[in-house]
Design a protein around this nucleic acid. Structure first.
Lengths: 108, 108
DNA sequence: CCCACCAGTAAGGTTTTACTTACAGGTGGG
DNA sequence: CCCACCTGTAAGTAAAACCTTACTGGTGGG
């Protein structure tokens, strides 16, 4: 998986957190789950989970889909995206030039 | 590369920063370099670079070695460690259980 | 002696991130 | 009507990350 430096950075930032790592792991093992269920499973509050899920979704690592259960409740199901990021010095060297904002030294 | 969840988290945290990504990239391309040279190349101040290098070294992604140049100056050379981290949902699921502090829900 | 290069560190401030509590609204059922 | 479940978000705070400026100390050479 090759992507722009900014996107790589966004994915890394999304994964660089124990809760979010555990969220991805849980979704990977359990498959599709809705928010409240996931919060119970991981053992954190719903608002906090919601915050982390938002970050993961923005990074494109999980997806959500609102569904209505047989008994009429609206459940927001999340599932993990089957990403595969190769993290090596060479891969980083390839992605780094496309990082924004840098204002890198071009003279010397 | 399989490692404990805490260590994975440490490496991800170390890489989840544009400066540090650029540092790894530059070291990967240039090979061994000393601190001041690297700071000039990347275009950030030495104290700031020093901070980022420390974090990368703590995560085991770069190594340093103090050497004396022919003209007597003490130069601290850094080089990148040839790491290879596989970042997939399955790999994260494997690493996550060994994250500390969690106090995860075991009942239900 | 002063300047240029190298190294590291400490203090202080700004900015992000993380988290909690509290609220608002939807459904179905006793 | 109230309770249990689901959803989301806003406000305020605590903690961590980030960055700058300033200082200390080493070398060699004009």
């Amino acid at each position: 998986m090759t992507c722009s430096g900014d996107r790589l950075l966004e994915m890394l930032s999304a994964l660089a957190n124990p809760h979010r790592l555990r969220i991805v792991a849980t979704l990977s093992v359990m498959g599709r789950t809705y928010v409240s269920q996931l919060a119970r499973e991981i053992g954190i509050s719903r608002p906090l989970l919601h915050l982390h899920l938002r970050k993961l979704e923005e990074a494109g690592l999980v997806t959500s889909r609102l569904e209505v259960s047989p008994d009429g409740k609206a459940l927001n199901f999340f599932e993990v995206v089957p990403f595969a990021i190769e993290l090596t010095p060479a891969a980083i060297a390839e992605a780094a030039p496309s990082l924004t904002a840098a204002t890198k030294n071009s003279d010397s």
